[in-house]
Design a protein around this nucleic acid. Structure first.
Lengths: 148, 148
DNA sequence: TTCGGTGCAAAGGGTTTGCAACCTG
DNA sequence: CAGGTTGCAAACCCTTTGCACCGAA
């Protein structure tokens, strides 16, 4: 069963109607599940392919679908981004984000044991970890173009 | 020599004029050096105390003073925030942010050695780590009020 | 005196709202 | 058929811009 299928099920379980618009949104995001994209990019993309789709449908649905865990939103250094939520039960994770192509890879949390010692009297609720750089694909791409 | 004083010196060294408005801004931020506040909050605060100060003076100066390292801006999960830069030569660090009072503590980065192994073929440029929770002060505050 | 800095007002851009029409279940 | 959902357009908010005036050096 595909991730998209699971997402649609989850919508139904939460009494969301399966409208064309929601289908389009999820299909697009599910087919780019490695990428966090900005709402503006998503908006522009959807409205290019479905010109009658309105801004608010896109913004509203992102917000709603994020609440039931179908989508994931995160504030990056350059603004809020959305991504299809592949693993519906995962909570905290860290990301490597490629500054060139925008790809976001999920990586395990770093070792916070020393941090915990330091924050002994603090209640920790969650983590947000971003590592920014250039991914393997972009590096080989860059190498081949500079050598040419 | 106070941090505020150092900041003013740094302005002069960079050929910035020491205007009233810049004084006000720095005084306020320096007196709250533990807190990252949003531009909107800063704007509202400044304009409450100095009604004739314009939005753009505030926004422009934050941007300029951040470039010379007097202020520090960071995009957190809940938006862009500013803070007085206490240590002018500081390196990267993580932040513990109190969800109740907004206080931001700087703590060393966690141990990324395992992460580095996994990202062997990736070029790492920088880290951004946020830990969210309740700080010690707020916890004791909460304890005393619930017990009362 | 000079030119960087400021205030004003208006524009800009992304996001949200109110409401009638629409369509899923 | 009913109520959730959508599209439209306008409102909204935060941020930026252009320009004449002000004031620090």
């Amino acid at each position: 069963m595909s991730n998209l299928h699971l997402a649609l099920q989850l919508l139904q379980q939460n009494n969301y109607k399966l409208t064309k618009q929601r289908h389009y949104l999820l299909e697009y995001l599910a087919s780019h599940e490695d990428f966090y994209i900005t709402l503006t990019q998503l908006d522009q993309h959807m409205r290019t392919f479905f010109p009658k789709m309105s801004h608010d449908t896109i913004y509203r649905n992102v917000k709603e679908m994020q609440q039931i865990g179908v989508l994931e939103t995160k504030m990056f250094q350059n603004g809020l981004r959305v991504k299809f939520q592949c693993d519906f039960h995962k909570q905290e994770h860290s990301h490597f984000i490629c500054q060139q192509c925008g790809r976001a890879l999920e990586i395990p949390l770093p070792d916070f044991s020393k941090t915990h010692e330091q924050l002994r009297n603090y209640q920790i609720n969650n983590y947000h970890v971003e590592i920014w750089g250039i991914c393997d694909l972009c590096q080989t791409k860059n190498d081949s173009t500079t050598k040419a």
